[in-house]
């Protein structure tokens, strides 16, 4: 079955969505991510959507769900790289995704996650020692 790969990097999980997702694929990603968060005890999730040309209410809801579920599992979520046209459309659609943290690009997103993690625990040495691992 078709799946979106999830990469692990230290305490973080990284997903880049590069295909026009149909609804089931989005739901599978939601399931996969939540089970990976609890399996790896990840503290942060980064979802890069810079390649997505549209985000409709279904995908928007999926992003909000992931963020909410991750929070319950003690992980921060950041969505990165939303295209201007996509952002304008989402706002017009009435979806402002208030609970979601966002960043311009992956680099800023990682900074944000590290900063959030640093606030909670004073052991910044733990991350970025591992190379990316295919999920």
């Amino acid at each position: 079955m078709e799946r979106i790969p999830i990469l692990q990097m230290g305490q973080f999980l990284i997903v880049t969505i590069q295909v026009d997702m149909h609804d089931r694929l989005a739901l599978t990603l939601q399931d996969d991510l939540t089970s990976r968060i609890s399996a790896t005890n990840a503290k942060g999730v980064l979802i890069d959507i810079s390649a997505l040309e549209i985000v409709d209410s279904f995908i928007g809801r999926m992003l909000a769900n992931i963020s909410g579920m991750a929070r319950i599992l003690d992980a921060q979520t950041v969505v990165t790289g939303m295209q201007p046209a996509v952002a304008i459309t989402l706002v017009e659609l009435g979806l402002s995704l208030p609970g979601i943290k966002t960043a311009l690009n992956v680099e800023r997103g990682m900074q944000l996650l590290r900063a959030a993690l640093g606030d909670r625990q004073a052991d910044p040495e733990q991350d970025d020692v591992d190379a990316p691992v295919e999920a």
């Binding site: 026009d20 609804d23 040309e53 549209i54 985000v55 409709d56 209410s57 279904f58 295209q83 201007p84 046209a85 996509v86 304008i88 459309t89 017009e92 659609l93």
Partner: peptide, 29 residues
Amino acid sequence: QAVRKACIEQGFSLVEQTKFVTAASEIAR
């Protein structure tokens, strides 16, 4: 994808395309 293609053919701007494709996606669902 079909709607996106049609919008590009008709010379819609990127934002116009995105809005129209998103609306089509909502209604199709």
